[in-house]
Simulated scan of single mutants.
Amino acid sequence: MKDWDDMRIFLSVARAESLSGAAKVLRVDPATVSRRIARLEAEADAVLFVKSPQGYVPTEAGARLIAHAEAAERAMEAAREDLQGRAEGLTGTIRLGAPDGCATYLLPVVTARIVRANPGLDIQVVALPRVFNLSRREADMAIGVSRPTAGRLRIQKIADYTLSLAASHDYLRDCPPIRTRADLREHPIVGYIPDMIFDSELDYLAEAGLSHVDFASNSVPVQIAWLRAGAGVGVIHDFALPDAPGLDRVLPEDFRLTRAFWLIRHADDARVARLNRFAEALTEEMRAEIAERARA
């Protein structure tokens, strides 16, 4: 185990749970990954992975090695940053996972400002309607809509945000008036696919007393596109309204939800100064952007 590159390949296989997945991340061919893992196992005199229907699963020895490999990874990252120095600003690549509503309507503006201040920084935003697995390094950090209660994580509240009922101006002009929540039952409803709601914080319609969804998608931009097309009434993030012309709030005095965004990181990353600095900038910029859009 003299070669850090072998350890890097080992970590990639453990996280991707496949040779091909690791090869794609590392930009090498799977045969190379297989040879390097075999060499590492020979040096360690231990089997590090077993192949299962779910993919490559670390053995007990492999699981023990993961902790040491991740410690080496953090040390290499800290050394790189120390050599480059803080004066250059943030550099390298940071991958950020986020729900698609946040990723579509907040992060493009926020991350563009951060990169303008740090030209050497590359940001990757992975927008998926699900919870990210930071242990598998699907992302360097993630934004969530609820606070995790398990796992070795570092969690920080970013900011509260609000959501409202909305529909297109044309729809509201041509359809029966909505004066109370009870009137909503006479209108087509836009919302999430019920069995694809990955977090209870996203079950907005239940709080409006609604259970049936006429136009359902697991994508926030799709839901907003339906609302703008006059499909019906749905719940929209207030911070998305400036990017959705033609939509009006419905029952603004009676219905308003408050949720929060949380920044979620692996606990061990607290010692990586570069990620700490990015997390600080991201939190500051997101708070400012949400506040600015609330005033729009």
Rank of each mutant, 00 (worst) to 15 (best):
S168G: 01
P108E: 11
Q84E: 10
V125F: 11
W262D: 00
S219W: 05
A216Y: 04
L263F: 00
A67W: 08
H187A: 13
L205C: 03
D248Q: 15
Q124D: 14
E207D: 07
D254C: 02
I178E: 02
N276H: 06
V190G: 01
L205T: 02
T180S: 04
L163N: 09
D203N: 05
H68C: 14
Q156W: 02
V250E: 00
P194C: 07
G92K: 02
A240E: 04
A127M: 04
D122H: 15
V235N: 08
A229E: 15
I158L: 08
S52D: 07
A142N: 00
P129E: 03
L83E: 15
V145Y: 13
D248F: 08
A87T: 08
I193Y: 05
R8N: 10
I178C: 02
R116G: 07
A14N: 00
I155T: 12
D254S: 08
D29G: 03
R179W: 08
Y105E: 14
T162L: 14
A225S: 06
A150S: 15
L165W: 09
D214N: 11
M286Q: 05
V25K: 09
D195P: 03
R152W: 09
G191K: 03
Y192C: 07
A71H: 08
E284N: 12
S20H: 13
P176F: 09
G97Y: 00
E289R: 06
H212M: 09
E88A: 13
R249S: 06
N133Y: 04
V109W: 09
A167D: 02
A22W: 03
D82P: 03
G97V: 01
A103T: 03
E73P: 09
A79R: 12
D5R: 13
V233Q: 06
E88T: 11
Q156C: 04
I123S: 05
A139F: 00
S211L: 14
S217M: 10
K157W: 08
A69I: 01
R130I: 00
A206P: 04
R74L: 14
S219F: 04
G230P: 04
G246F: 01
R179I: 09
G144M: 04
S12A: 06
V131S: 11
F49G: 00
L275Q: 00
P53D: 01
I236D: 05
R137V: 12
F198E: 05
S12M: 02
L40T: 07
R39K: 14
R249G: 02
L96M: 06
V220D: 11
P177D: 00
T32I: 06
R86H: 10
P194K: 03
A150N: 15
D140F: 01
R256V: 15
S135H: 08
R39S: 14
L134A: 07
A46E: 06
R39M: 10
H68Q: 14
D243K: 07
A98I: 02
E60F: 10
P99D: 12
P99T: 05
L83Y: 10
A38F: 07
R130N: 03
I155V: 13
F49W: 03
D269W: 13
V33G: 11
P242W: 00
A63F: 11
A42H: 12
R39V: 11
E186T: 15
F261E: 09
Y161M: 06
H266G: 15
A296P: 04
R154A: 13
I66N: 05
